[in-house]
């Protein structure tokens, strides 16, 4: 059950790193791309969790020991569907933000903006 596939582990690591970097950006579009990468990383983790690759697990064609574990694959497909739906929603949100405010930047929190205002003594509107 414990697969130690170094290549896949490195890929997962790289995807998590890239995804986290993109999450920290201002633009919602980049954040969405970050989530796409993170989603792939999580699905790869599920795949690796299923153990070594094997023939397709079809009842009556492949025996139980050599076939690939179908359960993580079922989980991964569920997760893919969910990520797809949320990505679509985030894109709609980004689009709405462009319509309403002219850009898709994630603004500062209200209280942060207030604190800034108190610090600098001036009203900052654009954020």
């Amino acid at each position: 059950m414990n697969a130690s596939n170094v290549t896949l582990a490195l890929v997962v690591g790289a995807l998590f790193a890239g995804g986290s970097y993109l999450l920290l950006q201002r633009s919602l579009l980049r954040i969405v791309l970050g989530f796409v990468l993170l989603g792939h990383a999580a699905n790869l983790v599920l795949l690796v969790a299923g153990g070594p690759a094997g023939p397709a697990p079809v009842a009556g064609e492949t025996g139980v020991p050599e076939a690939a574990d179908p359960l993580p694959q079922a989980m991964a497909i569920t997760a893919v569907v969910i990520t797809l739906a949320v990505t679509a929603l985030l894109l709609a949100l980004a689009d709405r933000s462009v319509t309403l405010r002219g850009d898709d930047d994630v603004p500062d929190a209200v209280e942060d903006a207030l604190a800034d205002r108190e610090d600098t003594g001036q009203v900052e509107e654009s954020r």
Partner: peptide
């Protein structure tokens, strides 16, 4: 990811 690790 955590669920994947638990399963692994």
């Amino acid at each position: 990811t955590t669920i994947g690790l638990v399963y692994a």
